[in-house]
């Protein structure tokens, strides 16, 4: 397996050049950017002998091991659990958030590509997600949206008995579906407006469907919407790219529910905290 920079002389070849080729040969064009204020560019790398059973991130691991040994700077990318649940990974692959399948980047496998393919790999692009380095971006704006109201105020020790309030199974299941959002940011990256509406709506829906979430329902929605505006996310124009690219399949219905709740809250006199 070798990786070479297209625009630089090949310095080393770590794989066994005599061995029979087993895997795919690919051309990667990767966004390289040293830091938030430095100009970035696409850089081309050739990579050989990639097994279709590799995950996409394992393919990047192989590339990085090569780059380190060649004395080049490895590609920075975020990842952690590598089982599709932590939400830490996520890149644009050939212009699609998380690539050609509706899953997280870490769960995308190389069997989705074929020998000779050229793959463009870029970071999430949104004003509210500044680039840290290469493919890694700063998504703390999402945490600040949660801070503005994405919770139920129940200090430890104050909870009533769990069975004190039955919850209809249909509500509980729908709340769960919305609660599976992993906060990866694909929705923002896929949206032409870089809107965070699906992320915010998922939380508003999760908590708004449960009896426990009712007391703060109005304040929650007005404050979370106000915060996402402050963060510089774009407005939602119901395009639906967000849901189509969401690895957890969060539904557009959550956005309808948010709009419904927002209208109700504003009519009831709720106003965002300044």
């Amino acid at each position: 397996m070798t990786a070479t920079r297209h625009d630089a002389p090949m310095t080393s070849s770590v794989g066994n050049p005599g061995a029979e080729k087993r895997g795919m040969n690919l051309t990667l064009r990767i966004w390289r950017q040293q830091g938030p204020t430095v100009k970035g560019k696409m850089v081309t790398y050739k990579i050989t002998d990639i097994s279709p059973d590799m995950s996409f991130l394992e393919m990047l691991d192989v590339l990085n091991e090569q780059l380190i040994m060649q004395g080049d700077d490895p590609v920075a990318f975020d990842h952690d659990c590598r089982e599709g649940i932590c939400g830490m990974c996520g890149v644009m692959i050939n212009g699609q958030a998380h690539g050609p399948q509706q899953t997280t980047t870490c769960q995308l496998h190389m069997r989705s590509f074929k020998d000779g393919d050229s793959i463009d790999i870029e970071p999430w692009r949104a004003t509210a997600f500044p680039i840290i380095k290469d493919l890694a971006v700063d998504r703390r704006a999402f945490d600040r949206i949660i801070q503005s109201g994405g919770y139920i105020s129940v200090p430890t020790g104050t909870a009533p008995e769990a069975h004190a309030t039955p919850v209809p199974k249909a509500d509980s299941d729908a709340a769960f579906d919305a609660a599976t959002c992993i906060g990866c940011g694909a929705c923002v990256a896929a949206c032409p407006n870089a809107s965070s509406m699906l992320f915010t709506a998922a939380k508003v829906t999760h908590l708004g469907l449960l009896p426990q979430g009712q007391p703060e329902r109005n304040d929650r929605v007005v404050n979370m919407v106000a915060q996402q505006d402050r963060e510089g996310f774009g407005g939602c124009t119901n395009i639906g790219e967000c849901s189509a690219s969401c690895p957890k399949g969060i539904s557009m219905e959550t956005i309808s529910r948010l709009n419904h709740d927002l209208l109700g809250a504003l009519r009831a006199g709720a106003r965002p905290k300044s």
Binding site: Y151, I152, V154, T156, G157, T158, A159, P160, A162, T165, P166, V167, K169, S172, D173, A175, F176, A179, H206, L207, L210, Q212, G213
Partner: peptide, 11 residues
Amino acid sequence: QCVAQGVPFAR
């Protein structure tokens, strides 16, 4: 505690 926080356990 978790139910009060809105954890959507199976029902």
